[in-house]
């Protein structure tokens, strides 16, 4: 465990905590995309199937359970909680997220580290995670007056991705046989999506105008 990996996991954890804080204390999920949250719930469910087959460390097991539990409970709150669900921007959150799943599944069947059920599901989860933020970015673009918690949530997620890239570079140079092309390529695609978004986000913040992404 290197410092980049730990910092990456912690920013990921904080991003989830910020979201849960917003939902629990303010009882609001305004500006949060249910489509993205559903994709994350699927991402963690399909990636952590090895929870039952492989023990890595107590840290690893606990973090997996936290990400599984939090992503599923966020979806539950947004869909079913009688107060929280009323703040959901349903009409703005129109991204057809299920259309992302089929190409990711096909890609996972074609490109995987090993053609087994767990490995295909693992590759699928990485491809899906790379694009899972898209509905959230589209919703942010449409929403006026992004509140602080939503902005911090996306900022923390972006930091988590960037730190993971640093972690891979560090591991590549310090560990023997540490080569994971699928993780790297899908991770870099994901990080670029955030970088592109943040570029426009900071531009609009600097110029103090409403965020407007190019078509």
């Amino acid at each position: 465990m290197n410092i980049f990996r730990l910092a990456g996991d912690m920013t990921h954890l904080f991003s989830v905590l910020v979201l849960l804080l917003k939902i629990h204390t303010i009882k609001s999920c305004a500006g949060i995309s249910l489509k993205t949250q559903e994709l994350y719930a699927i991402v963690f469910t399909t990636r952590y199937l090895d929870l039952f087959t492989t023990y890595i460390s107590l840290y690893n097991t606990i973090m997996k359970l936290i990400f599984l539990g939090s992503s599923i409970s966020i979806v539950w709150y947004m869909r079913h909680h009688k107060v929280v669900r009323r703040s959901y921007d349903k009409d703005q959150d129109t991204f057809r997220h299920y259309l992302l799943m089929l190409p990711c599944l096909l890609l996972a069947l074609l490109i995987n580290e090993k053609f087994t059920f767990l490995e295909v599901m693992w590759a699928f989860s990485l491809y899906l995670e790379a694009v899972a933020i898209l509905p959230q970015l589209v919703l942010l673009q449409r929403t006026r007056n992004i509140d602080n918690l939503t902005g911090q949530y996306v900022l923390l997620l972006g930091a988590y991705r960037a730190l993971y890239v640093l972690n891979w570079i560090y591991r590549y140079f310090t560990e023997e046989n540490y080569v994971h092309w699928i993780t790297w390529v899908s991770g870099i695609v994901q990080t670029l999506l955030y970088a592109d978004f943040f570029y426009y986000y900071f531009q609009s913040w600097k110029n103090n105008v409403k965020l407007q992404l190019p078509a």
Partner: peptide
């Protein structure tokens, strides 16, 4: 651990 069947990242 066997190569390619062991993922220790989250």
């Amino acid at each position: 651990p066997p190569e390619g069947s062991f993922h220790d990242e989250l």
